[in-house]
Amino acid sequence: MSTPVIQIKNLSKYYGDFQALSDVSLEVASGERMVICGPSGSGKSTLIRCVNQLEQHDAGQVVVNGVELGKSRKALREARTHIGMVFQQFNLFPHLSVLDNLTLGPMRARKLSREKAESLARHYLERVRIPEQAEKYPGQLSGGQQQRVAIARSLCMEPAIMLFDEPTSALDPEMISEVLDVMIELADTGMTMMVVTHEMGFARKVADTMVFMDGGVIVEQSSPAQFFSNPESERGRLFLQQILQH
């Protein structure tokens, strides 16, 4: 694998007295698909949110595409246009149509013309298999459709990296697979992905690297084959037992 696009060095983050991340270091190579798992409160969401600086770290470094984030606001905004983010709660803009949700970023942050932005938007709506919903408003769509729109919205920025923060956790069970299918297809295109999820089936299928976190530290980092069959750590073993039981 080539040079890392994301480098996280000795990252620490506090919420008041609570230490959410302690001295975390991590590298993601171009085209790598990394799945981060761990019990709730383990710091996995905080870690992924530090990559595009929705959370500011207190110590350490986040370097994306060779640029250290957190130094200049302009550099951060520029970097964010290359980092797509998909949220647990979709966070679509409810007052804008699906099409306008998709074109806003490209038009305002990438300065594309409306025609270009719209053709991009229609292209990615096709990719997430809901081209017919372009004129609707987010509130008129199902959860699974909304999340696919959110994925398309990020893809319209043509990012180098996609971050997923528990993208299926807020979905009804019957809608999870339609979102995962879109994510698997995306992985097949060679997109660099960091995914926080509890969907172990998805992880097994697409992950190059599994990261298991607990208590604000990376407990284990290995290949999925290794992690699922024979986790090194006792905590990893326990975690897998708990979530694979059912």
């Binding site: 980092i83 803009f93 806003l104 305002r108 942050a109």
Partner: peptide
């Protein structure tokens, strides 16, 4: 909702936009 601001930030939009 804070999520709206985060979505906007993650698209690289500035304060005025």
């Amino acid at each position: 909702d804070r999520g709206q601001l985060e979505a906007s930030d993650s698209l690289g939009l500035g304060y005025i936009d």
